[in-house]
Amino acid sequence: MHQVEMMVNGQVRRAEVPAETTLLSVLRETWGLTGSKLGCDVGDCGACTVLVDGLSVNACLLLAVQVDGQEVLTIEGMGGFDYLHPIQAAFERLSSIQCGFCAPGIVISAKALIDKNPHPTEQEIREALAGNLCRCTGYTKIIEGIAEACRAPAITDGISVTESGHV
């Protein structure tokens, strides 16, 4: 067994896990953060996308022990029911999401993009989402939603929502 400790959505989390435990399974099963989804289990679909030290990664392809001591942001750290991140708000306004299963990963990938590039072109948005599959929408409204979110004042001012949801 291995002790792991990481900062998840601004909160220190600890667990004792066997080496073969993925980051996704410790998030979902040990800490109850079920927002990140298991879609393909091979790193193709992006439903498990989280940020580790600010970089988007597939939580299904990382061992929890590899992430020991690092910072993790999951969808649960991206605003909640009463306070939406501008990306989430734009998705809601445009009905960008249908079944919802891909949404957590897509919101995280969009955040990773906007953090580095607050004014992406449509092509840059498409490239940023290449690792996030959606079977319902055809992506059009998702791409429009991200573009719209980038026009929101909170993004253009370089402010993003923190773990507690307060800007």
Partner: peptide
Amino acid sequence: LLAGGTDLLVDLKHGPSGPKLVMDLG
């Protein structure tokens, strides 16, 4: 040897038999 894991983790999960030891190069 575990580098980025994008291939190795897939093998560890779905491959026929797993290794005794995984060494993380990180």
